[in-house]
Amino acid sequence: MIFKKRSLSAKKSWLGFYFILPFIFGFLFFFLYPFIQSIVFSMSRLVINPDGYSLAFVRWENYRKALLVHPDFLRVFLTTISNILADVPLIIFFSIFAALLLNQRFKGRLLVRTIFFLPVIMGAGIILALERTDFMTELLQTGQDLPGGFLSGSSLKAFLLQLKLPELGLKYILNIVDKVPIIIRASGIQILIFLAGLKAIPSSLYEASKVEGATGWEDFWFITLPLISPLIVTNIVYTVIDSFTAGSNDLVKLIRDTAFGGAGYGVSTAMANLYFFTIALLLAITVVISARWVFYQED
């Protein structure tokens, strides 16, 4: 019987290759080939003519143009990267917090969850891109003279300024306060992932710790956090990827505008490549560092 099972699974194991065959084709034609081309393009002057395009090799010229000649690229590049770096920890903290909140049992939980995941539907693509530049949202959110704007940044700012806290720390806090809506609305998928992770923790662990007399605080640090720590890495990676491909990202806009009507395809691909390799480096560092303290359940 065991023998038959083995031979069956060995016989069918190569079938899996057929299932993934479409991906291999797609990867070669619509991914790897363009990927290599983009590296070639970034080192060439690209001219489009009626029957295709021609390339002239210019080595690092496009990179030099992007970094040293282009008036905005370096500034937008650095701002975008540092914004992503600043937002990632906030998004991770918030989504862990929200997932813990949603994991509890209370009345109206389904409704609250439906609302929490609404940003997954709305916070993507064109809507987000338009909103960033929208006047009404700005007017309502800064709420200078508007009555009832107690939840908006400005009145909170005035309150905090009166507290006479050290200026640098205060600026950092105010910056975070300004970002609250952005952080919340960028956390939809991350909350989902953490929530699924919390559901997967066996309840027997909590029961055992209750018997031992552990507090909820200890439960969190010694059970919950270690068990969802692999997901923190997943979520960091997801958040970084999500924010650098977002349509609301200024750098993405700049790269597109440079390609179609700006300094040309060569410079634009050079910009995109710089962007990708920076992000890839950051992701690699994150994964290496986090691998040290991530806890993997052995089973």
Partner: peptide
């Protein structure tokens, strides 16, 4: 092959946008 799947996720579409357009 699965590592390649993850790789497609990490590369921003902007990078392969122009070659894809031309292809």
């Amino acid at each position: 092959f699965f590592a390649l799947v993850i790789f497609t996720l990490i590369v921003p579409p902007q990078m392969i946008m122009i070659p894809l357009y031309l292809n």
